[in-house]
Design a protein around this nucleic acid. Structure first.
Length: 271
DNA sequence: ATCGCAGCCTGTACGC
DNA sequence: TGCGTACAGGCTGCGA
């Protein structure tokens, strides 16, 4: 499930592939619904100038102020292939850069491409990225204490903080020793600050270990060249229901919060 | 303001 | 072996 660390892993892989400066020679969309906004054909003839990330969006900036944003949602993947390579399984689109091809596949077809010129406006609904230099613990604590929502719901809200998904929300709440259903405005400043640190920590660890890959399924996260991430081996609570808490050895519980499976230690994370 | 649910999808794991 | 079913989760849109 691509969350911030998985998306960052993909972006870093793309940067290492030396795509910057290459010109788009051909765009193929094999599943029309892939492009939800704009027209991917407008990329033709433009040059890739920058690759970065905001929240869970991969941002490809081309010349002529042309942007392509890719959201992988659940099972979207980017592969680098050769022009002569056959259609990949579940392939939905590809962008040709001379002799290099960025190929997009998606088993469940939730992922989308968005082409636009005003990327700021498009991303205006997103909350701060946890690694944005303008974002800090003080701002986060202030925002937390101003909300009456449950912590898990809040962390999954991309307009509150961009990039956290179900896995890292659970891991961050465990690290901060906070119950997923705690109301945000019930936190002390110290607890809120601990949560900020915990979010950054689990996301950093995710990036360091190349993202998280669950199970062995086709929909599973892989890097650009098909390698699995290693971060799932470090989960403390996610999908560890019934197993001993690494902190107190009591069994981890699984509940449903906001239609999301939620894993926590009832003895370390009290309401 | 906040929550709950359906919908978008298909592969996988499970019980029988 | 094979069938049916539940489940996985990012996000939007809708209704309560």
């Amino acid at each position: 499930m691509p969350e911030l660390p998985e998306v960052e892993t993909v972006v870093q892989g793309l940067l290492r592939a030396n795509l910057i400066g290459l010109q788009v020679s051909c765009v193929e969309i094999s599943w029309p619904k892939l492009v939800e906004e704009g027209d991917a054909a407008l990329l033709l003839g433009t040059t890739l100038e920058r690759i970065y990330r905001r929240g869970k969006y991969i941002i490809l900036e081309f010349s002529k102020k042309c942007f392509l944003l890719i959201h992988l949602r659940m099972t979207g993947k980017i592969h680098l292939v050769k022009p002569s390579d056959p259609l990949q399984a579940h392939e939905k689109g590809r962008i040709h850069f001379a002799d290099l091809v960025l190929c997009y596949t998606d088993v469940r077809t939730f992922g989308r491409w968005y082409q636009m010129h005003d990327v700021q406006a498009f991303l205006a609904h997103l909350g701060p990225d946890p690694f944005d230099e303008t974002f800090n613990g003080q701002l986060f604590v202030k925002a937390l204490l101003a909300s009456n929502r449950g912590l898990k719901a809040l962390l999954l809200d991309q307009s509150f903080i961009a990039g956290v998904g179900n896995i890292y929300a659970d891991e961050a709440l465990f690290l901060a020793r906070l119950h997923p259903l705690r109301k945000a405005n019930s936190l002390t400043k110290k607890e809120a600050s601990a949560l900020f640190q915990a979010i950054r920590h689990v996301l950093e660890q995710g990036i360091v270990h190349g993202g998280s890959s669950l199970g062995q399924g086709k929909g599973n996260f892989k890097g650009l060249y098909g390698s699995f991430g290693k971060n799932q081996e470090r989960f403390k609570v996610y999908q560890r229901q019934g197993l001993p808490c690494p902190n107190c050895a009591n069994p981890i519980e699984k509940i449903t919060v906001n239609q999301r499976s939620t894993h926590f230690c009832p003895s370390c994370q009290k309401l």
